[in-house]
Amino acid sequence: MGRIMEWAGRPNHLGGLPRKTVIMAVGTFAKAVASLLNSTSVDNADTLLNLVRSRPPGVPLITVSNHMSTLDDPVMWGFKGFPTCNADLQRWVLAAEDICFKNPVLSYFFRLGKCIPITRGGGIYQEHMNEALDRLSNGDWLHTFPEGKVCQEDEPIRRLKWGTASLIARAPVTPIVLPIFHHGFQKVMPENYIFGKRPPIPLWKKDIKIIVGEPIEFDIPKLKQTALLTSKDLLPFQKYGWPPFGEMDEVAQRCLYIDISERIQSVLERLRILGRKPKL
């Protein structure tokens, strides 16, 4: 499959005006839903704001969160004080191709909104993952939902897909990885509202809670060495046909991506438990 309208995602497309227009419109919508129609509280917002606005030059940022509704992005960035309408500071995000890129009009719109199409089940080495790596190579901010699909139940964080871990490991400069847990979007956009379908518009007068964690540090060279050692003792398993990654074969890569994913999952689960505790 060829790249889907990648040209529309470039900042110089038509002088950048279409991107700025879409980001402004979507940002205004996010502000209205998060701050006017509903009540949104954010713990540790300054950590996120500082990393979005003033992280070291050339250092990419990956934010990771649970996935509670189709509105999580962009509405989770619509809280008071966040530069939601700034096209230069806005995130790139991995978006499901079968939902956001179903036709040329949607593809163009979501491309302008800094979305990268991802084919579910397409694997961590699918073509557009290279595009995500390009964004990280430029020092950009990328958001991912590593659970891979919406879950509106109050349950522990599910096992994460390995795509985010592979991006962290393969990026030329190791990204800053910031975990975020949110709750309440399942009430704003429930999956089973009327006859098993979502409501036509976001619901209102709901409470949204967002908990921003602290950056997770990954010593990638050390993790690679651990993965190489661990992989030597593993029995053969089904292979996916991954290309070599440096000196790492597919078995070692799998060990590396599992390790990184489990660390992120553990931190997200701690944030989830923290969010359930009532404030004194």
Rank of each mutant, 00 (worst) to 15 (best):
Q152S: 14
E214Q: 15
K206V: 10
K161Q: 12
P200H: 11
H143Q: 13
H182S: 03
P146V: 12
Q186I: 07
P172A: 06
P179Y: 00
A171D: 03
W162L: 12
Q186A: 12
K209E: 13
I208S: 02
I194R: 12
K205Q: 13
I216S: 01
Y193W: 15
G148M: 01
A171W: 00
I208A: 08
P190N: 04
K206R: 15
A171P: 03
P156R: 02
I220G: 06
I208E: 04
F145H: 07
E155Y: 10
P179N: 03
I180F: 01
L160T: 11
L178Q: 06
G213E: 07
D207F: 12
A165Q: 02
P175V: 00
W204A: 13
K149S: 15
I216D: 03
R198T: 14
E147L: 08
I208V: 12
E153N: 04
I210M: 08
L167R: 02
H143I: 07
N192W: 11
K197M: 14
V188L: 11
K149R: 13
I194S: 12
L178V: 07
W141A: 11
L167E: 00
R158I: 06
K222W: 06
R159Q: 14
E155K: 14
L203W: 10
L167S: 04
A171Y: 04
I180C: 01
G184W: 04
I194G: 00
K187H: 13
A171S: 15
A171R: 00
I194Q: 12
P200I: 13
S166P: 00
K209Y: 13
I168S: 06
K222A: 13
L178F: 07
L160W: 08
Q186R: 09
D207A: 15
W141I: 11
P215T: 02
E153D: 08
H143V: 09
F185T: 06
P172K: 08
E155G: 09
W204S: 15
K222F: 05
P156I: 04
C151N: 15
E191Y: 11
Q152V: 14
M189N: 08
I210V: 15
R170D: 12
W162D: 05
D207K: 14
E191W: 08
F145W: 04
P199E: 10
F145D: 03
H143S: 11
F218M: 04
P175E: 05
